[in-house]
Design a protein around this nucleic acid. Structure first.
Lengths: 236, 236
DNA sequence: ACCTGAACACCGTTCAAGT
DNA sequence: ACCTGAACACCGTTCAAGT
């Protein structure tokens, strides 16, 4: 009957603790740094111990996405569809900004968990509830794409890198840009225009996101008002 | 002076041969199957031999993207901006369909090579050439996002899996869907409606892509006509 | 029931050496 | 100049064993 208290008897692992720790690790170190081995180390446990609580790495990622989805606000109950959608997307965006890894995990979407399906379902429900036909809702959901989750493909950005301090370097880079990529240069300069920096980072991502979002929502609204249907369009 | 001919003297490696082989491997086996070691094996060479022609894996991927970008049609020289953009995006889409790996490689865009910048530059040039202000062009480029490359975030799809043959299984799945995800179910059914299958794969990706693309282009056109400017909007 | 040790089949990349 | 061998520091995961 020795005292068990003396032993550093860490509370036993469970799924929630594994997921929480994985999310914390991904939040702080980035998704690439999240390996089963590192996660186990973080939890003071041998790698294989994790496999009792999570089938494999894929399921771990799925679980992480599920808890992230849980953080997105529910749709406002009696709001008109447009503001309900808008608010929800922006809420998702806030969550995504807290969990930068979620973007890339959702992109490589081997993870269509029930929670994810549930989110998409309730998302579709906002359009249907707003009187959209099932047909239009379908296309509109596709058109939303990843914007449903609050992110855009940021395929376009940093045409100019931070360029640390040296004004000489910056000038050389600006010249290089203007010579080789005149169009990108001119739009970068315009964006920076009312900002401090000249070439780099003069871009308000939130603004760009809402610009595209509202463009889409306005388009949806127009089609909805016109009772647009794919039968009347060019389908097949 | 022995005959060199007898030795299986394979033509020496060079960057192009490495890239071509890498693309072929990624095209057929998928991007995950592309490792430096497998690629070396394919070329009948030890892994380290590759590093004489390619700095590291990152640069290999960059080179692959560059040759892919080269396959995208140049913009039609005298076409109005809208059809020029439209045609170019659809051409990019054709290329992307040939090289499925390109999507994910561009997404994880550690690869902003000169060729990629060149493509984006000429893309921006189509709007500027159409009379768009630099300001509007900037926002419009962001709104295009990955659609510039001919793909959308296919975050929404296969809510129902192939379901091989068993009609009993299919029925069970349909019931499960309609109970748990009623909204997704109703829009899936509508999409499948004029198709053969009931729940799965009733979706014409090309149609969805063009739907969203045209919605955006129409939106751009409207803003352009209205001489929209971010100063007049809600910016900052 | 839960955790561990040792092992397997992979990665990308380095360094010093071969021809 | 170009390629090789052996090694390092990682992966995810299996299997049989420990408590």
């Amino acid at each position: 009957m020795t005292q068990l208290v003396d032993k550093p008897r860490r509370l036993p692992l469970n799924r929630e603790r594994v997921l929480r720790s994985a999310i914390a690790l991904a939040d702080t170190e980035g998704i690439d740094a999240l390996s089963m081995r590192k996660l186990a180390q973080e939890l003071g446990v041998v790698p294989m111990a994790l496999y009792k609580h999570v089938a494999n790495k894929e399921e771990l990622l799925g679980g992480m996405v599920d808890t992230m989805v849980g953080e997105i606000e529910a749709p406002a109950p009696h709001a008109p569809w447009k503001s309900a959608v808008r608010q929800r997307v922006l809420s998702a965006r806030q969550v995504l900004l807290r969990h930068a890894w979620a973007r890339s995990v959702i992109e490589s979407r081997t993870t269509v968990t029930p929670a994810v399906l549930g989110y998409m379902d309730s998302f579709a429900g906002m359009f249907l509830g707003g009187g959209f036909s099932a047909d239009l809702t379908h296309h509109v959901m596709h058109a939303m794409g990843s914007r449903m989750w609050g992110f855009t493909q940021e395929v376009f950005d940093d045409p100019a890198e931070p360029a640390p301090e040296q004004p000489e370097m910056q000038a050389a880079m600006a010249r290089h840009m203007s010579e080789n990529y005149p169009h990108l240069f001119s739009i970068a300069v315009t964006a920076a225009h009312d900002d401090e920096s000249v070439v780099g980072r003069g871009c308000d991502d939130q603004f760009e996101f809402e610009f595209a979002l509202d463009l889409l929502l306005d388009g949806f609204e127009r089609l909805h008002r016109q009772k647009w249907t794919s039968q009347g369009g060019t389908r097949r």
